[in-house]
Amino acid sequence: MAPTAEAVLEIRDLVKHFPLTQGIVFKKQVGAVKAVDGVSFDLYRGETLGVVGESGCGKSTLAKLLMVLERPTAGSVHYKGQDIYKLRGKDFKAMRRNVQIILQDPYTSLNPRMTVADIVGEPFDIHPEVAPKGDRRRKVQELLEVVGLNPEHINRYPHQFSGGQRQRIGIARGLALRPEVIICDEPVSALDVSVQAQVINLLEGLQNEFNLSYIFIAHDLSVVRHIADRVAVMYLGSLVEIGTDQQIYETPTHPYTQALLSAVPVPNPVGRGERERILLSGDVPSPADPPSGCRFRTRCFKAADKCAREVPLLEVRPGSPHPSACHFAEIKPVVDTVDA
């Protein structure tokens, strides 16, 4: 699973603002929800990049932008050297084939009126070059086998499957066109613990088999730690820290990452009550009106005057060997490496 240095996706200064309007007949823009506000990173071939953050931080908008389900306000995403937002016609279709998504909720993301054969085979209708008509049924059955479902269940409807099995159907659909990149938007958070492990193992196995690159969006930090090679932490529309899984989990330098990690309950009662916890006060501010300067300063235990004036850039700093968007970044281990 060693990631090579070849970037499949290059994301630069990606911005998505949703306008807020007032008035019914004459709509006038009164502001904007800054869902994604200047995000840059690379995704390398064969790697898993975890994206973590709390609800409302822009993780899912980022996923939609990468899928071109939304078009950005500014910024670019290059797939193999081409800006995906400038592609049209045949080139656009070819790009789409190679970037697929797996959604969170296996109950709402599968059409209840379609059989498994229709759901998993639908990508072939749009991209007939992948599987000629007569060959489709066999292809779908192959895919079902790959994700661990019984190929004989091809004519069943989604309601006849359990949550974990439905997620496998969603994964089969994502794999159908043999993509290079799969964006996993909270793929296991709707599943029970015992089923979660099965799906994580499946995703890891498929990655090795097909040399896939994953963007793995999740709020469960221990799942991300298990699966990701690199991790990006998002807060209120921008990245606050990015690094290898070890850098982020063992030597985090941004106060938000530190607080987030310390808030995760450790599934081991030994030493409870003695663990240091960084309790953040309050809630995430509204993305329609983010704080000036550093967006985290209103909840930060390190906030100083400078933080209100200057936006901290995501860069390597004297106190941080990996990029961190904090003026006062310094290493502070918050999680025992030998927990659990």
Binding site: M1, S162, G164, S194, I227, T337, D339, A340
Partner: peptide
């Protein structure tokens, strides 16, 4: 089946089957 640090890169233990 809880992901653990020292298990990274290995398969997670999964209870087979469904509830």
């Amino acid at each position: 089946s809880i992901p653990r640090v020292d298990m990274k890169g290995q398969e997670l233990y999964a209870i087979k089957g469904l509830p």
